[in-house]
Design a protein around this nucleic acid. Structure first.
Lengths: 108, 108
DNA sequence: AGGTTAGATAACCAAGTGGTTAGGTACGAG
DNA sequence: CTCGTACCTAACCACTTGGTTATCTAACCT
């Protein structure tokens, strides 16, 4: 699986997006991350492994804790990818397109 | 499944992203879309249904053809979502953060 | 040494995914 | 009317996913 696909797949789950959102406030242990959710520890562990494989988090070691930290670099690729489609949703780009078409019309 | 999750899930497949890329050049029939890929028609049909459910394409009817058209509005949500993480990857934002921290230090 | 806590792993399950082949529908052309 | 084309649905398969419970390791605290 390529990097971009892995990132999109990781982001497709609301729990994982919530974990990322939490990590914007700073590093957290697995226990802290699991607190807001009504699912078991192993389930969180799996989510974290998916996020780690996608390169969205890094994990350290401190005694019996394994603190997680956000790594947003893959999200830059996502933003860049999405931006390529801006002209298909952005009204001003649509107007620009219309203007260009009009100019071409006048040229003839 | 919420809208954003559906969009991310749809984008997690390279074939579907390639289909979207093709549709930026204008509408296309199912046959035309399937041409670049070495997979069966039904497989393409399934991909198109996923894209349609995610609101990324719309489909018309013209005789025996079912032309597909890009609808990029869900991608705007993706771009907005990703932008919220910009400060975690963008160097200039990091520098801004450092500046703000420095200013706070001086205040004390 | 013994108990508690943080976390990972294993084994399992139901549901979903991406692909296939086979067969059905709808339309245009001869 | 019949044939070919475009497309869909159905049934199936292997694999993945998101969850569970049970069990393990590692570190800390008495």
């Amino acid at each position: 699986m390529d990097q971009l696909s892995a990132t999109f797949a990781a982001l497709a789950d609301p729990t994982r997006r919530a974990i990322l959102a939490r990590l914007t406030e700073g590093p957290a242990t697995v226990k802290e991350l699991s607190e807001p959710f009504d699912i078991s520890g192993p389930a969180i562990s799996k989510h974290l492994r998916v996020l780690e494989k996608a390169g969205l988090i890094t994990r350290g070691r401190e005694a019996q804790w394994r603190p997680c930290q956000l790594d947003a670099t893959p999200l830059k690729e996502v933003a860049v990818w999405a931006e390529n489609y801006r002209r298909f949703w952005d009204a001003s780009y649509t107007r620009l397109d219309a203007l260009l078409t009009e100019m071409k019309e006048k040229e003839r």
